[in-house]
Structure formats: C-alpha cells, structure tokens
C-alpha cells in the first residue's frame, strides 16, 4: 500500500508541472495585456514599456514562468496587478467562507441523500419513491439563480428572521455577543443558500444512491445472506450499503475540488463573499496572477481528489488492494 502511495505521488509530479505550464501559458494566449489594466488607453509606447519593466513583464516568457513557478513552490502566488495585494491573501480571506458554506451543504446532502436514496430503493415504486424521484427531478431542473431569487422575494422579504443576503449581521460577533447569539445569527444566513445548493445537489446523490442500491440488492450474495436468515437490517446496512456506496465514493473525490471552488451564482445572489466571485471578477478584470492561481489550485485539487477517491476504495471495498 505505501509503495502504491509513493508511486502515485511521484506520478503526480509531472502532472502538476504540466498544470503550471498550461495555467501560465494559457493566460498569454488570452486577448488583452496586464498593461492595459494599468496604463491609460492613450498611453504611449514608452509609458507602456516603463510599466512592463516595473512589473517584470518585459522579460522573456520562459523567464517570467520560471520566476512565477519558483514563487509558487514557496507558496507565493504573486501580487494582483489590479489590487496590488498578495494573491495568497486575497484567496485566504475568502477561502473560509466558501469552505464553511460548502461543508454545511455537504454534510446536509450526504446526511440526507444516502438514507433517502436507500429508503427509496428499498421501497421501489412506492409513493415515497415517486415523491423522492419527483423532488429529485425538480431539484435538478430548477435553475439556481431563479430558485434563489424566488426564495429571496417569497421568503426573506416576508419572514423577518430570514435575511435577504449576506453572511452575518454587522455588529454581531463573539466579542460583543454570546456564543448562542452568534450561532443563531450565522444559521439564519445559511438557510437560503443551503436550501438552494442543497436541493440541486441532493437530487443527484439521492438518485445515485438509489440506483446503486437497487443494483446491489439484486446481487446473489444478498440473496445468500437472506437465505441464511440474517436480519434484514444487517443485510441492508452491513452487506448492501457498503457495496452500494462504492460509486458514491468516486463522487466524493470530485467533491473535494468543488469544496474550494465556490459557486458564482449562489455567491452573487446571496452576496456570499466566497471564492467564486473572486475568481470570476479576476477573469473579467484580467487579473492574471489571480486567474493563474485559481487554475493551478483547481487542477491540483482535482488530482488530489482523484487520489483520495482511489484510496477510499480500499477502505470501502476489501477486494481492492494496491499492492
């Protein structure tokens, strides 16, 4: 197993280098130039050249890449051309907000979707199953921005305790209020975004769990278990569920990069100060350093997510081993 892990990690190195190459050079292909952001439209060639040299943009591309890569390896993503701030700081101040929202949503989704999926598989074609299926399709079909606005108008504007947008009430913090007051305040702001994100994600995972469970309970070994008189509970939760969760684990692997990516639409609508808006604004503002940082981090997390999923297989499926 440890040999496998080491091998996999070694394999990741060229992949990660490839990611930095693509992330860097793809930005050079985009129309526009960081200097356009800084200089006036009427700036002369000399003025532009001066700005280029201040920011080291007059160096050959491979030199710029090398400097950038070196800084990257030290955890330094450079300075934003637009804001003049370290990109790392810009990301770190938004990261907790995104992880916080996504973690709550993930706990809710997996906490609900797996039991619902199992229950609806066990009662296939029952009215419960039909209801779940209908909600699942509804959740998939409702566009997030529309559903979000609908909730804001229909719920937040009418029910006082549910706020329109934001993450917390200004002035309510642990410094001035009790822990419970702060907790209640933060929860109020979570209700709508979690509802919108939850409904659409819940739908997918419920369906995956259901179909995977349906497949498993028809397997021979489940019939065998039943025939030797095992309790139904034991059959479902010990024998069937563990096998049915295998495909869900794969999804969980993909969930890791999503955890850090933030949803632009949700963040915009609920004015949630997360990474999604930061990355999209960076694209619109041609804030190269920020965009490159997001590309590198995003791609790296996908690689890591896949790796983690592979390792999780071993945990859930004793037949798989990587020796």
């Amino acid at each position: 197993m440890s040999t496998y892990i080491i091998k996999r990690i070694l394999q990741m190195i060229p992949l990660l280098i490839g990611i930095t190459v693509v992330s860097f050079f793809i930005m050079q292909l985009a129309p526009g130039d960081p200097v356009d952001l800084l200089a006036e439209r009427t700036a002369t060639a000399e003025e532009r050249a001066r700005i280029r040299s201040i920011y080291g943009l007059d160096e050959p591309l491979y030199v710029q890449y090398w400097i950038w890569l070196n800084n990257l390896l030290r955890g330094d993503f450079g300075y934003s051309y637009v804001r003049g701030r370290p990109v790392r700081d810009m990301i770190l101040e938004r990261l907790p907000n995104t992880v916080y929202l996504n973690a709550v949503v993930a706990v809710m989704i997996y906490g609900l979707a797996i039991p619902i999926g199992v229950a609806s598989a066990l009662r296939q074609y029952s009215s419960f199953d039909h209801t779940v299926t209908s909600f699942a399709f509804l959740g998939q079909a409702l566009p997030n921005f529309w559903f979000g606005l609908l909730l804001i108008y229909g719920v937040a504007l009418r029910i006082d305790i549910i706020p329109v947008a934001g993450m917390s009430t200004y002035g309510i913090s642990l410094a001035t209020h009790s822990f419970w007051a702060v907790l209640v305040d933060r929860l109020r702001y979570l209700i709508l975004p979690v509802a919108v994100m939850g409904l659409s994600a819940l739908a997918g995972i419920t369906r995956y769990t259901r179909s995977s469970m349906l497949e498993v309970i028809r397997k021979d070994y489940i019939r065998t278990a039943r025939s030797k008189g095992l309790a139904e509970r034991l059959i479902i939760y010990k024998h069937a569920l563990r096998n049915a969760l295998l495909p869900i684990v794969t999804i969980l692997g993909f969930e890791i990069p999503l955890m850090f990516s933030g949803s632009v639409i949700i963040e915009n609508i609920f004015s949630w100060p997360g990474l999604g808006t930061l990355s999209v604004n960076a694209v619109f503002q041609r804030d190269y350093m920020v965009v490159m940082a997001f590309n590198v981090i995003g791609a790296t997390l996908v690689v890591i997510g896949n790796f983690v999923a592979d390792l999780l297989y071993v945990v859930v499926d004793p037949r798989i081993s990587y020796d």
Binding site: Y153, A156, L157, A165, G166, N268, I269, F270, S271
Partner: peptide, 20 residues
Amino acid sequence: VRIRFYGDEQVMLTALEAGD
C-alpha cells in the same frame, strides 16, 4: 457610514425594500 456590497442588483433592491 457602512457600504454593503451585493452581487446582484435585484437582490440589493430587495434588501432596500426589506430595510437592510
């Protein structure tokens, strides 16, 4: 004086209507 940022102008309008 506090300046609050909203991602969407319709939502900002709702916040005004709600008195935020």
